[in-house]
């Protein structure tokens, strides 16, 4: 059973009206447990919509989504999803520790266990020293790490990330990428990751999915056969450059057909 399987998935917004948008159309994809899938494509090609379809934030107009063999809504109720968006969306009245505890609180974990788990997650993202800070006392990158810790706190089987590093500077971004790979190696979580950055997609992924707009659909899937574990040395690897070129060409074909 694959971690995620999409068959003929489509999404039409405002069907029948003059504002009808075919955001996603005829998407087929199977993702194995532990895979890291990046979705890349021009703005408006339906990447976020695809992620929202997987995460049961919006229902599909066509096709079926199955997560661990379940419907997305069953998977959501089973707390299979961890989500990270471009904005960290931390609750400003809660300290860092309490923000990470939020999902655990909602899931009814008792206070002692909750606090232990949140502390472990903050250690994982190397923010244990900031547990008692408020979100506004942290930099954007640190806030995003808190958001990742929060998403991982309840051991979701699949992590959905929509341009999580989009607002960060290049250096912070590369550091966060390495950290994300390290975290994934420790947790074994399946990841679906939306990005605009080709190097980011190649560096992180086991496969890169290229999408085209109008209607949003998958045009190419590139296998990333870079050696594991990946490190800063990987970014200097000739194979890394070849794959960048491969993905760039795939994208170019999409952008000016």
């Amino acid at each position: 059973m694959s971690a995620l399987s999409l068959r003929g998935v489509g999404k039409v917004f405002n069907p029948g009206s003059d504002q009808e948008v075919r955001a996603v159309h005829g998407v087929d994809l199977a993702v194995e447990r532990g895979e890291f899938i990046s979705v890349i494509g021009p703005s408006g090609c339906g990447k976020s919509t695809l992620l929202r379809l997987i995460g049961d934030l919006t229902p599909p107009s066509a096709g079926t989504v199955s997560v661990n063999g379940k419907t997305p809504s069953r998977a959501r109720l089973d707390r299979d999803y961890g989500m990270v968006f471009q904005s960290a969306t931390l609750l400003e009245w809660r300290r860092v520790q309490a923000n990470v505890e939020l999902p655990l609180e909602i899931m009814g974990m008792d206070a002692a266990e909750r606090s232990r788990q949140a502390a472990a997650m903050l250690e994982l993202v190397q923010l244990d020293r900031f547990a008692n800070h408020y979100p506004w006392q942290l930099s954007g990158g640190m806030q995003q790490r808190v958001a990742i810790a929060r998403a991982l706190a309840f051991n979701p089987s699949i992590l959905l990330m929509d341009e999580p590093f989009g607002a960060l500077d290049e250096m912070t971004r590369e550091r966060m990428q390495s950290e994300l790979l390290r975290i994934r190696a420790e947790t074994g979580t399946t990841v679906v990751f939306v990005t605009h950055s080709i190097p980011e997609a190649v560096f992180l992924s086991t496969r890169v999915v290229i999408m085209s707009p109008r209607p949003g659909t998958i045009t190419e899937v590139v296998d990333i056969d870079l050696p594991e574990p990946r490190s800063d040395a990987t970014r200097q690897d000739q194979r890394f450059f070849d794959l960048l070129t491969g993905v760039r060409e795939g994208l170019r074909a999409v952008e000016d057909p």
Binding site: G55, D56, L57, R76, L77, R79, Y81, G82, M83, F85, S87, T89, L91, L102, P103, I106, M107, F154
Partner: peptide, 13 residues
């Protein structure tokens, strides 16, 4: 904002 509500939805709150 909407993302905060969606986060709560993802926790099945």
């Amino acid at each position: 904002d909407a993302t905060a509500s969606e986060l709560m939805r993802s926790y099945a709150a």
